[in-house]
Amino acid sequence: MSSRPSRTASKAGALLASASALLSAGLLYPAPAAAATTASSGHTPAHATAAVLDLDGAGGAPVLHGEDRAYDTASIVKVDILAALLLQAQDAGRQLTARERKRAEPMIRRSDNAAADALWRQIGRASGLAAANKRLGLTSTTGGPGGKWGLTRTTASDQIRLLWAVFGTGGTVRAGSGGLDARSRAYVRTLMSQVAPEQSWGVSAAGTEDSGRALKNGWLERNTTGLWDVNSVGRVTVKGHRYLVAVLSDGSASMGDGVSLVERTARAAVT
């Protein structure tokens, strides 16, 4: 939402196809040739921030690597959109409808933008996201303007708070208050563990066991500079140890560079 120099040659076609699909769907914006040339020849170095929470450790605070500043979410916000939808359903005392599931599942598994557009409207756009995030404990996330959910701004530490709301043990849940209940958390976890194979890059590079992997990625080319925002959030397992990992980045000259940066940063942060 291209490939790493080391082991992504086989992924390149699939990732580029995904990028083309996003371009046609409106999340990615074509950059002028001049901007792309400038970006590749002399742009400001790319930046990345990682946050890691050890689910099996004694401490309860995430460890930060890099400056915990705000980045554009691109499609990682789709996890947040789904969380907001589930909270609204909980408050109404119901499960998701078949229509809602038909949109939620491709939104996470395939990063479907049309599904995200529909659910973004349904939750109330930025204001609906803000209401959900207040309940989930996020403090530094601001929804994108109008229909531009991909321009939501967030920090790595806030993404760990969101991941904790999904992968943590939960708490007291009542209509209108509290976080995601056990059924909702299990639903999000399941979808994040079933992302399309061509979108399984990112924080998964830090894991050693596929069975413990669950993630959501996001990628966005900026129309003014030709530079890329590339992000990845999720849970990984390393030698039986579970970690929540969020890596946010911007300023990469290409999607491939961004993927490589995110994966290097994730591995370094976990190890």
Rank of each mutant, 00 (worst) to 15 (best):
T155R: 08
S75P: 03
S111I: 04
S75W: 05
G128T: 09
G207K: 13
R153I: 09
Y29K: 14
H43L: 03
V63T: 14
R69Q: 13
T190Y: 11
A269D: 11
N133A: 07
A17M: 12
G13T: 15
A61D: 14
A92N: 06
G150E: 14
R103S: 07
V77A: 01
A33F: 11
W164Y: 08
A36N: 06
V195Y: 00
L215M: 12
T37C: 07
V188L: 10
D91R: 06
V52W: 04
R7M: 14
L82G: 03
S193F: 05
A70W: 04
T97Y: 08
A114W: 11
L64D: 09
T8G: 15
P197D: 09
G59W: 00
A205H: 09
T154G: 00
A165P: 04
L53R: 10
Q199L: 14
E221P: 01
A51W: 06
G207L: 14
L261D: 14
A17V: 13
A205L: 11
T142C: 07
A12I: 15
G168N: 05
V233S: 01
T8D: 15
A253F: 07
G202W: 04
A175C: 01
Y187V: 06
T225I: 11
A84T: 02
G171W: 03
F167N: 10
Y243M: 12
R213T: 15
S193P: 01
H43R: 06
T142H: 09
T224I: 09
G147P: 02
R135V: 02
A48R: 00
A266F: 08
L27K: 05
A246F: 12
M192D: 05
S18H: 12
I76G: 05
R213V: 14
L96A: 07
S157Y: 00
R242S: 13
E67S: 13
R174F: 04
V230R: 03
R264E: 12
R99T: 14
L163R: 08
M1E: 15
S41E: 08
T142I: 13
G124V: 09
A83M: 00
S204Q: 12
S260V: 11
R110G: 10
G26R: 01
L119W: 00
T8P: 02
S18G: 09
G137L: 08
D210P: 11
D229Q: 10
R109A: 11
H43W: 02
T44N: 00
G42I: 03
S3P: 04
G59L: 10
A269R: 10
T155S: 08
G258P: 04
L138A: 04
S177K: 02
Y29P: 06
T208A: 05
T141S: 02
G179P: 03
G226Y: 13
L64E: 08
G144L: 11
G13A: 15
N133H: 12
P197S: 05
A175E: 07
A126G: 03
L55M: 10
T152M: 05
A131C: 10
S6L: 15
R183I: 12
L163G: 03
T139A: 07
G212T: 13
L82R: 02
D181V: 01
A9W: 12
R161E: 13
L215A: 08
R101S: 09
L162M: 08
A196C: 07
T141M: 07
I123Y: 01
T271M: 10
A186P: 02
N231F: 06
A51K: 02
R101K: 07
P32V: 02
V173N: 01
L244F: 04
A131L: 13
A246C: 14
Y71R: 05
K11M: 15
